[in-house]
């Protein structure tokens, strides 16, 4: 994908896939907890988060389909692409691990998503601004809740502290990708549709720094970042997510459910 070949609509389509695939894959991961959480109250709370993310997916991928102009619905985009066409961050496809790792992943993402949505609420694209406004209310609660849980577990017992530090260390190499821009981002920055990903970094560092300090956790000082999700080169895990998610649509093509 070269910069010169990229029209605004093409860039917009890719960008909407990124937003929608993030929420789609993360909702899938979070929903895996249903029935298995450490306590009923957390089970219910995780399901609420997953439900919000599914709703956001319907908006983002629905709009992606409109922008693409080939008549594809949100469902067709979600269920009938292979892994290389997915544009989500590698972070959200990381396996759940223990409850602490799931909540750490959630917080790292929530912090980013809340900042991203705040910028998108001011997008020159009205449709994007509207979806961002609705989603930002949900995400404001997500980030509050995941931050509280990260703090509680980080500051809890020696065991919970150790597990949370491991979670942060394991996931941190997947943080950098959120802030690395490419041609798609550049095309949208130019038209005031989306922010430069790098511009979110300082606020994110502030927010995450405050929460980790309260959680008594140490942020790794390694700048290395795994990348590839935004352009379709994923980890091995995504294939299994899709094998699950797309099974019925693939096994019975054209059926209505």
């Amino acid at each position: 994908m070269t910069n010169a070949a990229l029209t605004t609509d093409e860039a917009l389509f890719q960008f909407l896939l990124r937003l929608g695939d993030n929420t789609l894959i993360l909702s899938h991961r979070v929903s895996e907890w249903c029935g298995h959480a450490p306590v009923i109250e957390e089970d219910i709370a995780l399901a609420n988060t997953a439900l919000d993310l599914i709703g956001q997916t319907q908006f983002w991928l629905g709009l992606a389909g409109e922008v693409e102009g080939k008549g594809r619905s949100a469902d067709q985009i979600a269920y009938l692409r292979d892994a290389w066409d997915f544009r989500n961050l590698l972070l959200v496809e990381r396996p759940n691990g223990d409850f602490g790792k799931t909540l750490m992943r959630q917080f790292l993402f929530d912090a980013w998503q809340s900042l991203m949505l705040a910028k998108l609420m001011k997008s020159t694209n009205i449709r994007i601004a509207e979806i961002a406004e609705k989603a930002s209310k949900e995400v404001a609660y997500h980030v509050e809740r995941s931050a509280d849980t990260v703090v509680g577990l980080g500051d809890g017992t020696p065991e919970s502290h150790a597990r949370m530090q491991t979670a942060l260390d394991d996931l941190y190499p997947y943080v950098g990708e959120m802030f690395i821009g490419d041609a798609v981002d550049a095309a949208l920055v130019k038209d005031g549709i989306a922010p430069d990903p790098a511009s979110l970094r300082n606020d994110w560092d502030d927010l995450v720094g405050r929460v980790m300090a309260e959680a008594t956790l140490t942020i790794p000082q390694k700048p290395f970042a795994h990348v590839g999700g935004k352009s379709g080169t994923h980890t091995e895990h995504l294939g299994y997510v899709l094998a699950d998610m797309q099974f019925l649509q693939r096994a019975y093509p054209g059926a209505e459910w």
Partner: peptide
């Protein structure tokens, strides 16, 4: 059930 009042409010919301 909740560990403290703050979490109780959040759990109640959920």
């Amino acid at each position: 059930h909740a560990p403290d009042a703050e979490m109780a409010i959040k759990n109640a919301r959920d």
